[in-house]
């Protein structure tokens, strides 16, 4: 009854797997090899140089600055997004129209968001300084992206702004599956709103929160598009907004140090892998399940 099974499978799988192998798998494998070479793009000149690229990375002030900035983003972005999103998700219970509005930035490309916020931060004609003047807070005006102490925080704020809406919707959907009678029972027993949230809602939606930590952590290790489009240089002023992706991109496509850039790629890979494992470990809780 089922002849031609293997012919069908072969026909169905060959093209997609070839595409995946050639354009995804093969480049990933090559990257691990190139990371140990001094390749500059000329085919005939590839020398294995051991771990030189990695030791060099550790004393490269630009890469270390990038690492620090991604580290700061890693501390600030997931925490801020999760706290605000949890609050907004709980607050919008029963009034969904807010969620529709909060979610919209999620649909925009980071590139579009970067251009939009670059306008917002523009010193003379930008929205932010205009708003501050309107509120009579002239002394708070800044040239935001041009000040080394502020520029990275401006980028972080945009990252947070663009991510919140998604997690509001994600958490809100999870909260809706928490049965109302449990919460009512707790309220009757005299538990306050905050206690109900901490003791009942949060443990029951912890799976979603755990997912959020990992995704936001990975987001915080990137930042390439925002920095590349928004900041002066890009990565400036004074390298104050340099991120690892940008260093890699420039090392490869501006300076043609493809071996060194691949080593940076390998470093980013191991950082994100470690991060995911650590996030899973630290956010593990005893699983609460409803019978």
């Amino acid at each position: 009854m089922r002849h031609g099974k293997y012919r069908f499978l072969l026909g169905a799988l060959t093209l997609p797997l070839a595409l995946y192998g050639l354009l995804v798998l093969w480049p990933y494998l090559q990257a691990f090899y190139l990371a140990f070479t001094d390749w500059t793009g000329v085919t005939s000149e590839v020398n294995l140089i051991g771990i030189d690229n990695f030791t060099r990375m550790w004393s490269d002030p630009l890469f270390l600055a990038a690492l620090r900035h991604n580290g700061l983003m890693l501390l600030a972005v997931p925490l801020a997004v999760i706290v605000v999103a949890l609050g907004l998700a709980a607050g919008t219970r029963g009034t969904r129209v807010y969620r529709v509005v909060y979610f919209f930035p999620q649909l925009l490309s980071v590139a579009i968001i970067a251009v939009l916020w670059q306008f917002v931060y523009t010193p003379n004609s930008g929205l932010l300084n205009g708003l501050l003047t309107g509120l009579g807070l002239d002394s708070w005006r800044h040239s935001w992206l041009a000040e080394p102490d502020l520029a990275l925080w401006c980028v972080i704020a945009v990252l947070i702004w663009s991510a919140i809406g998604f997690y509001v919707v994600l958490f809100a959907a999870a909260m809706e599956s928490v049965p109302a009678d449990i919460m009512e029972a707790a309220a009757i027993d005299g538990a306050g709103e905050l206690t109900v949230f901490r003791r009942i809602t949060l443990p029951l939606i912890w799976d979603s929160v755990q997912v959020a930590w990992i995704y936001l952590g990975i987001l915080a290790l990137d930042g390439f598009a925002l920095v590349q489009i928004m900041t002066v240089g890009p990565g400036g002023p004074d390298n104050s907004t340099e991120v690892m992706g940008l260093t890699l991109y420039r090392t490869a496509f501006t300076y043609s140090k493809f071996g060194y850039a691949s080593a940076m790629g390998v470093a980013i890979f191991f950082l994100s892998l470690t991060l995911a494992v650590l996030m899973l470990k630290f956010t593990r809780r005893e699983k609460v399940e409803l019978a």
Binding site: W26, P27, L248, Y249, F258, S262
Partner: peptide, 10 residues
Amino acid sequence: FLALVPLFFV
């Protein structure tokens, strides 16, 4: 980012 350089050459 890990694939970017080899992908470009492929």
